[in-house]
Write a protein that binds this DNA or RNA. Sequence first.
DNA 1: CGGAGAATTGACCTACCTCAAGATTAGTGG
DNA 2: CCACTAATCTTGAGGTAGGTCAATTCTCCG
Lengths: 247, 247
Amino acid sequence: MTAQTLHVPSACGDCPIRHRAVCAHCDHDELLELEEIKYYRTFEAGQTIIWSGDMMSFVGSVVSGIATLTQTMEDGRTQMVGLLLPSDFVGRPGRDGAAYNVVATTDVVMCCFRKKPFEELMARTPHIAHRLLQMTLDELDAAREWMLVLGRKTAREKIASLLSIIARRDASVAAKGNAGPTTFDLPLTREAMADYLGLTLETVSRQISALKKDGVIQLEGKRHVTIPDMRRLMDEAGDDSDGGYLI
Amino acid sequence: MTAQTLHVPSACGDCPIRHRAVCAHCDHDELLELEEIKYYRTFEAGQTIIWSGDMMSFVGSVVSGIATLTQTMEDGRTQMVGLLLPSDFVGRPGRDGAAYNVVATTDVVMCCFRKKPFEELMARTPHIAHRLLQMTLDELDAAREWMLVLGRKTAREKIASLLSIIARRDASVAAKGNAGPTTFDLPLTREAMADYLGLTLETVSRQISALKKDGVIQLEGKRHVTIPDMRRLMDEAGDDSDGGYLI
DNA sequence: CGGAGAATTGACCTACCTCAAGATTAGTGG
DNA sequence: CCACTAATCTTGAGGTAGGTCAATTCTCCG
């Protein structure tokens, strides 16, 4: 609820995701065209950015903060199907209705492009189309990785998988199998973690407690996590020892 | 094991997936370029087309038959992460190693493109890149739909979901909420269904028996399925009544 | 006819869910 | 600064959906 003042970039040159988002490969002229059709919007933690089924007037990138993509059944069961971090793309060019709910987990700044002009720009700008293809392929891989987690891993492995994924990119882990401790803040509530993992929040809580008791993780408060030994956590996740992330 | 003679198209004009595969938007000249770098390969039912981790010398399209994309953990737990039907694309431009096992479920004909030349062609042929983006976005949607199935649905709902997906496209179902019976052959063994759904094959078998006893489906032999009332099946799948497939 | 893979069915077990009671933390207003 | 409330989280006790193990049965082919 705290309406903090969020940092909004003043121009693309200033933008923290300039080299990772859809615009990553754009040259100067292409950026100028993008500037034409873009605007920033901010959302408070907890706010719904897009409702499933709604018409989408924009697509865009997460500039800062974290948002979730969720699907819900009529009886209320919900499954998170994506975790949106800075530079991730929201919306599907070529489709008008949103297929998922997009909810801000923390305060979020979005860089929005008016949808129609963006689609036209994309049609004549291979740099953008190509980058979007790359990003979509990456997301597809992540989704498939997650299907293994959802379908075949135990609750304990699920938690360990989620923690190691968050740790891997949130804290800038040193390159290979760094043995030193890693530390980060959990951006998700227990309930959100449960929705991500196809568990109940009670089970999430129990497994976190168990991992803590076994020394796999340390907790400071409810949200601040320290991983003394990253390799140990990855073993618990059931991935092959190299992390399972082959290129 | 039957090494049947498979129909292999003699040229793109002849090809059954000409208007749905990566080449769908190509004009005549672009097709000629594709012909240069393409060749057909056939695989028998049960054969592994690609091993996870292997170098990939080609990418390509499934022309006929059905193949599966699977991920395996060290201890043998396996999860299917994709079902490849005619026109589906295999391989990831820009990556050398395969991330998944690709296995032929039936006899399969593949239209393969040598990887390097294909990547170069794609770089200067927006028609191909654009079509691949479309297809990848569709796959991502399918993967996310499947995450809901894996994470939140009951065994019975999982089976009903799988059956309704197969029914929807395998049998050419008449347009909207057709009440007439639909019939098709299951292209998957019980074990493959289990790997798709994150279940054991015993549970798959039990739930199919239950759906049969309750009149939701009818079986002739083990594989031939009749759906007397498609809407009923979709209710059992837990999707919203319109099928949940909004565009 | 015989053998092998595929499927079914039963009996039992366990990982996770459900329901419920407290504990902890953070936010609010006096 | 301190209650007061509402989230959020933890922990326990007991139930159940689906897993495991094992024995048949079915079906396809040689």
